[in-house]
Design a protein around this nucleic acid. Structure first.
Lengths: 189, 189
DNA sequence: TAACAACGTTGACAAATGTCACTAAATCAA
DNA sequence: TTGATTTAGTGACATTTGTCAACGTTGTTA
């Protein structure tokens, strides 16, 4: 798994062999089963993740029992219950392994250690943060300015694999609409 | 203005006098009038801002002529048309001075210069980025999982000054609802 | 294989929200 | 001040979306 990890990061950062060994030691490989819970809501998230294979989902469960999809993490991406991991406060969201997955995880202390001790790591992290922030801004834009149909069309255009790959329940939660509405959007057009 | 800027940042970063002088030289003070346009949509945003006094708004204009409020920047906060500023691509949003304001602005090249040459500046920037990202995640949560009434109640609770201070047109755009719906929410409860 | 659970679709209806038109109130400039 | 412009509130109605229930399909597991 570490070699795949390294190949994703090459181009983003240049490290010596010793530094890679340190990075590998802190990012711990794990495999998960489909449906496995990595974080329960209400608990502090102590880990951040990198997905080598498979898919993680970060979910909000509403008071009404509905599940909303806050974020999805596919191969080659970092993901976490970011607000909880960063602030050390209980998480509003839970993390589930949507598919059987191979992931790497890094705990909070080791995360800080890398930021402090690997030159360039803070930049790598910052640039990934910028990308995620931009993505979240675009999501806010679509949520405040478009109706469900346009949001779906745009998702279909920009991220078709997401729709093909995931159960429509999760896609609906991601778009902020009910499963039934999504089903109707699909059949209409 | 620079002294106020410095007082906001003290606690976040420790710099020598020479370093502060450099920072002050690059962050250029400007005053704006109410309604002044700082960035037109479709143009690349070359500046990032710090608001000393007043308020900036980052707006999306929909095809239908509606204006949506992507972000608001009050005293003591950084703000920009982030996706455009970061990627150097044309901005989907425009930036307006909502009130007559005193601001500092930093262009892209100087931004990179500070990241590269002031030790600790990248960390300062990264930590501010984390806060903004968390805020945007919480906004996504409220947009996908709550109806307009609850979003308004929560905004009223967490950010009452925003509602008091700004025209309700802008507040409605921020919540992703029409002005009329906001007006009805206000009167109902 | 059989039984059971999860998922996706559809209809009927209810609730939320948008649109348009109009009026009242506030703001601003001359 | 006056007149003009912007902004806020409200009613009537249309549209979107949610909710609940039913049903068939798929997938899982004993």
């Amino acid at each position: 798994m570490h070699e795949i990890f390294k190949s994703y990061l090459t181009g983003q950062i240049k490290l010596t062999n010793e530094q890679w060994q340190l990075v590998f030691r802190l990012w711990k490989p794990t495999v998960t089963k489909r449906g496995e819970v990595l974080l329960q809501k209400g608990k502090v998230s102590h880990n951040t993740y990198f997905v080598v294979k498979g898919c993680l989902g970060i979910f909000l469960s509403g008071d009404d029992g509905h599940e909303y999809t806050r974020f999805l993490v596919f191969e080659g991406k970092f993901g976490s219950a970011f607000p909880s991991f960063t602030t050390r406060k209980p998480s509003a969201a839970s993390i589930l392994s949507i598919e059987a997955s191979q992931i790497l995880l890094l705990n909070y202390r080791d995360h800080q250690y890398l930021l402090d001790h690997i030159p360039g790591w803070e930049r790598l992290f910052r640039i990934n943060l910028e990308k995620e922030y931009i993505y979240s801004i675009q999501r806010i834009e679509s949520l405040i300015s478009m109706d469900a149909k346009r949001r779906y069309e745009i998702l279909l255009e920009q991220n078709p694999k997401l729709i093909q790959r995931l159960p429509s329940k999760i896609v609906a939660g991601y778009l902020g609409i009910s499963q039934e509405t999504l089903s109707r959007l699909k059949s209409k057009k």
